[in-house]
Simulated scan of single mutants.
Amino acid sequence: MTESPRTALPPLDSPPGDRLDVVSAWDADTPYQAWRPQILVPPTFRPATPARVYVAVNQKGGAGKTTTAVELAAAWAAAGLRVRVIDADHQEAALSVWLMPQYPEGSPRHSLRSVFFDECTLAEATYPTLFEGVDVVPSGLDLSRVEYERPIGAENAIAAAIAQEAQEAGGHSPYDVTLIDAAPSLGLVTVAALTAGDEALVPVKVGGLDMKAMASLDRTIRSVQRKTNPKLKVGAVFLTAWDKSDFARQLATKVSEDYPDAVVVPIRRSVRAAEAPIAEQPVRLYAPKSTAAGDYDQAAHLFLQMPEAGA
């Protein structure tokens, strides 16, 4: 493949009226008809510093997990951070299709499966995308081999690969952010992703079935915390396809009670945003004025300390 020129990801210029309110507690007395979408930031929250490893995870498909991974990555790259996205979803490999890794001509093509089976390092499986500041570790259907062949140390494979890379780079990760897009299942690869993560980011579509799936995810996260990664925490819950309804507010209240230290972010429903994967562009490029692009951008700036302008 001939390397294509990379597109810069621009900052967004959202009008103040389009930005989400940021609150430390929900207002339960206001009727939902008059309720504006709000980002809940608990008093215990502190922005993280690079380098950071996030895992976008939900047991149920269709929750907006891959969109969340792509949009946060694009927002951080637009702010000047160097971002790597790891595709840990073998079922459709949607992230790899969306971001289109740029493979060098004449070289073997590696993937996340190659890392699990010690065929290459994580750096060797990392490729540039068409977007400046965003690299990707791709995956395909062959990642499913990890589930049934179960290579030795698979639960720690991604964490070990990230640690080895940092060691070889002088003790610091070459990336400010690594964002893992986990499969909509709770198998071995997802456990490996959570084992490598500092924080889980949980997209939940505003609907009852997604809340039922949260119970299984919560059990898996707690098991990982006990057995392989005690530092893991749920950093944020994204309420995707959000629109104004009493159920949306009930859902927001419930997840804030279940995860009292997590940021809760509504991502407003946007038809244009849903078209972005087909165009093979992040939403911030395809529909920069959409509410979804602005909501993800605002969340990204909350989570991480950004570099100073001109630094």
Rank of each mutant, 00 (worst) to 15 (best):
L12C: 10
L12P: 13
S14K: 13
R19N: 10
L20T: 11
D27T: 06
A28W: 08
Q38C: 12
V41C: 06
F45W: 07
R46P: 03
A48V: 13
T49K: 14
V53P: 08
V55T: 15
V55I: 10
Q59F: 08
G61M: 09
G61Y: 09
T66P: 02
A69H: 07
V70T: 07
E71Q: 10
L72R: 12
A74G: 13
A77I: 01
A78S: 13
G80E: 01
V83H: 08
H90F: 09
H90N: 05
H90G: 05
A93M: 01
A94K: 02
L95R: 04
L95N: 03
S96P: 04
W98M: 12
E105T: 13
P108S: 11
P108C: 06
S111Q: 11
L112Y: 11
L112V: 14
C120Y: 10
A123Y: 03
E124V: 07
P128E: 02
D135H: 06
G140V: 03
G140R: 05
D142Q: 05
D142H: 07
L143W: 03
E149V: 08
R150F: 09
R150I: 14
P151Q: 01
P151D: 03
E155C: 00
N156V: 04
A161C: 01
I162M: 04
Q164P: 02
E165L: 12
A166S: 13
E168P: 01
A169L: 04
A169V: 02
A169R: 12
S173L: 15
Y175N: 05
L179P: 07
L179T: 05
L186D: 06
G187Y: 08
L188W: 11
L194Q: 00
T195D: 00
E199V: 10
A200R: 06
L201N: 01
P203I: 07
P203N: 07
P203M: 09
V204Q: 07
D210F: 08
M211Q: 12
K212H: 15
L217E: 11
S223Y: 09
R226Y: 02
T228K: 00
T228R: 00
K231P: 03
L232C: 06
K233H: 14
G235S: 06
G235V: 04
A236G: 11
A236D: 04
A236V: 03
V237N: 04
T240E: 03
T240Y: 05
D246Q: 15
F247W: 12
F247V: 09
Q250R: 12
A252R: 03
V255Y: 04
D258T: 09
Y259H: 08
Y259R: 04
P260Y: 07
D261M: 00
D261Q: 13
P266W: 01
I267T: 01
R268V: 07
S270A: 08
R272F: 14
E275G: 12
E275Q: 14
E275F: 10
V283P: 04
V283E: 05
R284N: 10
Y286N: 13
A287M: 08
K289V: 11
T291Y: 12
A292V: 01
Q298K: 02
P307R: 10
P307I: 11
A309K: 15
A311Y: 05
